[in-house]
């Protein structure tokens, strides 16, 4: 651990990695709590995987067509929002089975990404870092984009707390009260999409679903109100991200995987601890 701390002091890339973890944790705790209580983690999973399509396309356009300003993260944001919109509109309006559409968006997005990555000359390393994350490669530009996403996500998720809570609890009744419930549902999916992009920089798109849901699920074992769950989930996400980074550094293990394993371990411990404090109101 002291080795890690010394390395942090000496290397800007590690400082940037820690900052990226912190930025991702802010949105993770707040939006993760909504995702868990609304039970839409599979929608979040589909959005996460479809992000590969956007990353692949952005990278393809940058390398093959010389759109040098286009970063894979830009493609990720676009793809995540499109996926969220498609799933949201289908589940609200079309008479299709929602889980079928979720699965389809999941796979079609990934397939799109795989094709564009194959069309793009260069290393396959890129694909691996999309899929499993490489928090050590985060650049200062990435950090600015992440901070911007945080601002949007946290601003909306906290200012519209009551509306989102009402829609998560009882969408039908919220609609009856004259609330544009469909709009808030789509907004929630949009916020989930942006959070997925933030977290994908930390653990990659395949592992996002664990980091999005496990801290909130852990917090829900201790609190029975949404606000405290959000606060604890944010702190947990930060601790897990930084802890995983530190643990992986010495033995040179993949940080994203260690972070997710740590999140899983913390959740398991909380199941036991939660039972001890379970009988509170």
């Amino acid at each position: 651990m002291s080795e890690f701390l010394a390395a942090v002091a000496g290397h800007a890339f590690l400082q940037q990695a820690l900052l990226a973890g912190a930025l991702a944790s802010l949105a993770c705790g707040v939006v993760g709590a909504y995702v868990v209580v609304k039970r839409i983690s599979y929608i979040a999973g589909a959005i996460a995987h479809s992000v590969l399509g956007g990353m692949g396309l952005a990278r393809y356009l940058a390398v093959v067509h010389g759109w040098g300003w286009l970063h894979p993260l830009h493609g990720a944001v676009a793809a995540a929002l499109v996926a969220a919109g498609v799933i949201g509109l289908v589940s609200l309006h079309a008479r299709q089975r929602e889980d079928t559409i979720i699965g389809a968006v999941w796979a079609v997005g990934m397939a799109t990404g795989v094709v564009f990555i194959a069309l793009t000359p260069g290393y396959d390393v890129q694909l691996m870092s999309y899929l499993f994350g490489n928090i050590l490669m985060v650049t200062p530009e990435n950090l600015w984009l992440m901070a911007g996403l945080d601002l949007v996500v946290l601003g909306a998720a906290l200012l519209l707390y009551r509306q989102l809570l009402a829609v998560c609890f009882d969408q039908e009744f919220a609609r009856l009260r004259g609330l544009p419930a469909d709009f808030y549902y789509l907004l929630l999916l949009g916020l989930t999409a942006l959070t997925v992009v933030l977290l994908s920089t930390v653990v990659g798109i395949i592992l996002v679903i664990a980091l999005l849901t496990l801290p909130a699920a852990t917090a829900a074992n201790f609190f029975r109100r949404l606000g405290p769950i959000m606060a604890l989930a944010t702190v947990l996400c930060l601790g897990i991200t930084w802890g995983g980074l530190a643990l992986s550094y010495g033995p040179d293990l993949p940080a994203g995987a260690i972070i997710v394993l740590l999140a899983g371990a913390v959740y398991l411990v909380s199941l036991g601890l939660g039972r001890l404090v379970h009988n509170r109101g």
């Binding site: 039970r39 519209l160 009551r162 509306q163 809570l165 609890f169 609330l179 029975r224 949404l226 769950i229």
Partner: peptide, 25 residues
Amino acid sequence: DPSFPVSALEVVLMGLMGMGSGLGL
């Protein structure tokens, strides 16, 4: 949903939604 983290008071408050709700708490 028995695990939904909301108090009885908050559920009642949801009956005020759409009445010039505004932002925040």
